[in-house]
Simulated scan of single mutants.
Amino acid sequence: MKVVIQACIASLIIHVVYLMGTLGFGYLQTKFYEPNLVGQWEKVDHLQSEVGFGGVVIPPFLYAFTFVGMAIISGVIIFLLKRSVTKE
């Protein structure tokens, strides 16, 4: 039971680090963005005449699957590490 709790905590930590890393990287890209106004005048792109609404929507249950999957992987790693330490 202790391995299951440790695996869930490891999965939660991995998910939080991933989320904070993604947000932090986006923040840094926004913070240090410098548009190239001079170079943009040389290349002209035509805009679309139609507008599309929507985006990529990740279903909430997908996060549950990744959490459980990461907990299983973490649990196997923790179990194997504990087993290899006790054999020595």
Rank of each mutant, 00 (worst) to 15 (best):
I5N: 03
V68T: 07
I73N: 00
L28R: 06
L80T: 03
K2L: 12
V16C: 06
G75H: 02
A10L: 02
E88G: 01
H15F: 10
Q29K: 14
L19T: 12
M1V: 03
I14M: 04
L80M: 08
F65A: 11
Q6D: 11
L28E: 03
M20T: 13
G69A: 07
I58W: 05
Y18C: 13
P60G: 00
D45E: 14
H15V: 05
L23G: 15
F32E: 15
L23S: 03
L28T: 04
F32G: 03
G55A: 04
I9A: 09
E34D: 11
T86N: 10
V85D: 04
V4M: 11
W41D: 14
K43T: 12
V76R: 08
L81P: 00
E50H: 09
M1H: 07
T30V: 07
V57K: 11
G52N: 12
E88A: 08
M1L: 03
L28S: 07
H46N: 10
L47Q: 11
I58V: 15
A64H: 02
E50P: 00
Q6G: 09
V16P: 00
K43A: 02
C8M: 14
K87C: 00
I13D: 00
W41I: 09
N36L: 10
S74I: 01
Q40P: 00
C8S: 13
V44T: 07
Q29Y: 04
I5S: 05
L23M: 14
T22E: 15
W41M: 13
V4E: 14
A7K: 04
G52M: 02
G24E: 06
K2T: 10
F79I: 03
Q48G: 06
A7G: 11
V57D: 10
Y33L: 09
G54I: 06
L47S: 08
S84W: 04
F53W: 11
E42G: 11
F79T: 07
G39P: 04
G24Q: 05
L62T: 09
S84K: 15
W41K: 14
V76T: 04
C8D: 05
Y63E: 03
L62C: 02
G52V: 07
W41H: 11
D45R: 05
M20L: 15
L80H: 00
L28P: 00
G39A: 15
V51M: 07
Y63Q: 03
L81T: 06
G75I: 01
L81G: 09
G52R: 06
V76Y: 10
S84D: 12
P35Q: 04
R83N: 05
I9R: 05
Y27F: 15
T22G: 14
I73H: 02
L37K: 09
I5D: 02
V57E: 04
